[in-house]
Deep mutational scan, measured.
Amino acid sequence: HNLTITQGKLFFHYNPKLCLSEIHKMEEVSGTKGRQERNDIALKTNGDQASCENELLKFSYIRTSFDKILLRWEPYWPPDFRDLLGFMLFYKEAPYQNVTEFDGQDACGSNSWTVVDIDPPLRSNDPKSQNHPGWLMRGLKPWTQYAIFVKTLVTFSDERRTYGAKSDIIYVQTDATNPSVPLDPISVSNSSSQIILKWKPPSDPNGNITHYLVFWERQAEDSELFELDYCLKGLKLPSRTWSPPFESEDSQKHNQSEYEDSAGECCSCPKTDSQILKELEESSFRKTFEDYLHNVVFVPRKTSSGTGAEDPRPSRKRRSLGDVGNVTVAVPTVAAFPNTSSTSVPTSPEEHRPFEKVVNKESLVISGLRHFTGYRIELQACNQDTPEERCSVAAYVSARTMPEAKADDIVGPVTHEIFENNVVHLMWQEPKEPNGLIVLYEVSYRRYGDEELHLCVSRKHFALERGCRLRGLSPGNYSVRIRATSLAGNGSWTEPTYFYVTDYLDVPSNIA
């Protein structure tokens, strides 16, 4: 807008934040220059609390790290170098490059900038070799853009010569660093050979998330399962459950009422301010606690030095998902009996873990797994792929695949051998790939016309006998059925096997 004052003059007093240069501009645009008398524009009460600059400061050096910015700028000295009290560095987070010096300023003089007072450097006698002032900004957020400017702080001049310097606002972004852990990993099994893994992005990506790394490792069953005799009275049979499938998407929606109208769909109840505040506090606490764990609990591995020492970490090797089922080394339970199943799973520490690289999504279907087997899954978020990966501390989750139908069934015939004193040795093959492992066998036998009897055969007993022995049988026709019990439950009964026990007292003698 054009402003013209045809008559009258300007009068400025007691404006401590208004620089004289701005008042002189007002004289020019209003056409009143030359009308004012000496005392109409006070030299001592206008701009006496402001830094009124008329020179431009330029930054000469900028260096960044993930949490620091090192700045240096060209030296500046007023005509009387004693008038320079120091520099004021202003900075704040700036997602967009549209910041002005006066953003967030209120009537009390406060604003949204963080201000650092910096002492002037030592003055050199040689004007050509003056030290460049600077400042190291610490405690910054990774991968965050900051708006920065600097200006001088000078003393009051009796001659009211307006001098000083100020830089333009520059924008500097800190470097990326390792992201925080992925949030809320959930693993479920939808079949006997697959596990579905879902997660949420890290709360602090500290860069642009480029991919996720998912490692999985087959877990050995508890050692007590191999040692305890679950045929003993009072000892509860062990059981394991597989990871249940995901709930429906509708039930997972946030901010939804727990109660549904019987007449149909209901609208979600909005969260109160107290609920939102509580969630923010919980989120802040979780982030602080995660940072504490990362800094205190997890110790970084030592990389190899120039002395030739090897990095103890196993090298990563990509495998196809079809090879995942046989990740671990199978060892027989008892070496003397080769027909026992290889369900003991000690994992070799030198073995390469299978892994998958996930790009542009937060889910993965891990296939080719062994049925009813526990897996430990390790999830890392990465925001750099080359020249070397920059990934987060791992988040861990466990899951067990679903049982395989008929995996616990005894394959092959049940054979028998009759000894003296009416002892019958029953023999059968253990299931080759049971659900988890076989903890015991149930032997059901009966003599024709009598009630059915049951015998429990422990895992250890089966390994020693290759089956079991029935003792003290009365003469007669017998039928026997056997079924295995694994961590997933009972298998199917075998087809009945028949044998006849004679009275050993009636056996004919070869003595003449």
Rank of each mutant, 00 (worst) to 15 (best):
Q275Y: 04
N422L: 10
S363A: 12
L437C: 13
P332T: 09
V507H: 03
F372C: 04
P300G: 09
L379I: 13
E249Y: 06
G374R: 10
V397H: 15
L213T: 04
S344Q: 14
K236A: 10
P338K: 05
R316Q: 14
D408W: 06
E433Q: 07
L277V: 10
I209N: 07
S315K: 07
N208H: 05
Q256M: 13
S486A: 14
N360M: 09
K460C: 14
P270G: 02
L225F: 05
E290V: 02
D250R: 06
F215V: 11
S304I: 09
V299S: 03
G412P: 14
P245K: 07
T401N: 04
T288Q: 15
I438N: 10
G449Q: 07
S398I: 05
R301G: 03
P349R: 15
T210L: 08
L321C: 04
F499W: 08
E465M: 12
N295A: 05
S283E: 07
A407W: 06
R466A: 08
M402P: 09
L470I: 15
K278L: 05
I377T: 03
S398P: 08
L379N: 03
L440S: 03
S243P: 10
V393E: 05
L455Y: 11
H371T: 10
H461G: 08
I377F: 09
N421P: 13
K460H: 08
N435D: 02
S486R: 02
R376W: 05
P238W: 12
T288K: 08
G368S: 09
S479N: 05
C231M: 01
G489T: 05
F499L: 10
P244F: 12
N490M: 15
A399M: 02
Y441P: 01
F355Q: 09
R481L: 08
A330V: 13
H454S: 02
H425N: 07
L235H: 06
F289E: 01
F462V: 11
G306E: 08
S474C: 15
W493S: 06
R481H: 05
E224T: 08
D204L: 13
P332D: 09
V414K: 01
A336V: 15
V443Y: 01
F419V: 09
I276M: 04
G374F: 13
E362D: 06
L225Y: 08
P349T: 14
L228E: 14
L321F: 11
T303S: 08
A395C: 04
R313N: 14
Q429F: 12
R390C: 07
F462D: 03
T485I: 11
W242E: 06
G306M: 12
R218A: 05
Q252T: 15
P300R: 09
E221H: 05
N339K: 10
S320E: 14
R240L: 07
